[in-house]
């Protein structure tokens, strides 16, 4: 680590923020067109975030404040490790295990802060969010371990490079189709999109963990959401869609996957949390077990 790495990291954070926020704005427009509306401006998400940051806000004790900062810091720190196409702020550190562990700091900070607000809706939201996390993480991690076993590598860019050698057919989503489906379903859960968005249900539990946030705190939460979306979608792009040899390739793949998930999300209703857990432990977990079995014992799909 030196000063160049540091500057590179900041630049990458900025790029990730601009890219993901623009994409969110475009997706709001896409959803609006799906519902036959005109939709907001494509930079509406920037306006929303900056407006929230320009407002005042109250505190509910130091746990509340510290939790938000810890969550945002943890998520931003994780985002630095993610390769943006070929660009890497800290080369050699884009390991799945590092990302999984640092990501947990952000998630725990969020849970801590929301519980610190003392609002019962927030507690319900947090408990649902953590239950949801437990549900999607097990099938997802099982598939990821299968990949690591198959290629003897746990580096994101390394796995992406291996896939790119085989051309389009080398992509893991085509080599291991079951695992690819599991990963996409898990990603839907990670992003908190329908049908797995019971923890932020605005009409039922008043937006769950976010219920007591306003003004600056809410702005930070929106930033956090953009960064965590960036991390999660990037993980899938690198693990299953061959990453990106160029920045443009990475951005195109990323945008297509994110828009696809958004479209899926907008035609589905919402699962109750117990239904979501049952679903994850039935279908994706079974598929993940089969996929890992095929990889480890039969070597199917492994070149």
């Amino acid at each position: 680590m030196n000063l160049v790495n540091f500057a590179y990291g900041l630049l990458l954070l900025l790029a990730a923020f601009v890219f993901q926020t623009t994409l969110t704005g475009i997706n709001r427009k896409v959803v609006a067109r799906l519902q036959r509306r005109r939709g907001p401006k494509f930079y509406q998400q920037f306006i929303d975030i900056f407006k929230a940051l320009s407002k005042g806000s109250t505190t509910h004790g130091w746990v509340f404040d510290f939790g938000v900062i810890m969550a945002l810091g943890g998520i931003m720190a994780t985002a630095i490790f993610i390769p943006f196409g070929p660009l890497k702020a800290v080369p050699g550190m884009d390991n799945i295990f590092i990302i999984a562990y640092v990501l947990a700091v952000g998630m725990l900070g969020m849970a801590m802060s929301a519980s610190g607000s003392g609002n019962p809706w927030a507690s319900i939201g947090v408990s649902r969010a953590l239950t949801n996390m437990l549900a999607y993480d097990i099938p997802f991690m099982m598939v990821v371990f299968g990949l690591i076993f198959a290629f003897d590598s746990s580096s994101l860019s390394g796995l992406a490079a291996i896939q790119r050698e085989g051309g389009l057919l080398g992509w893991n989503v085509l080599r291991f189709p079951l695992g690819g489906i599991v990963a996409m379903i898990s990603l839907q859960g990670m992003l908190g999109k329908k049908p797995f968005d019971s923890f932020i249900a605005p009409a039922e539990i008043a937006s769950g963990p976010m219920v007591e946030y306003g003004g600056r705190h809410l702005g930070m939460l929106f930033l956090l959401h953009e960064y965590s979306t960036f991390i999660e979608v990037s993980l899938i792009v690198h693990l299953f869609f061959g990453g990106g040899a160029t920045v443009l390739e990475f951005m195109v793949k990323y945008a297509v996957i994110y828009t696809f998930l958004n479209l899926v999300s907008n035609v589905l209703p919402r699962f109750k949390i117990d239904q979501a857990v049952t679903f994850f432990y039935k279908v994706p977990l079974a598929m993940a077990v089969v996929q890992t079995f095929l990889i480890i014992f039969l070597g199917m799909g492994v070149a």
Binding site: P202, A203, V211, Y213, G214
Partner: peptide, 8 residues
């Protein structure tokens, strides 16, 4: 918006 805290 769902709650008064978030609203303008």
């Amino acid at each position: 918006m769902a709650t008064p805290r978030q609203a303008d």
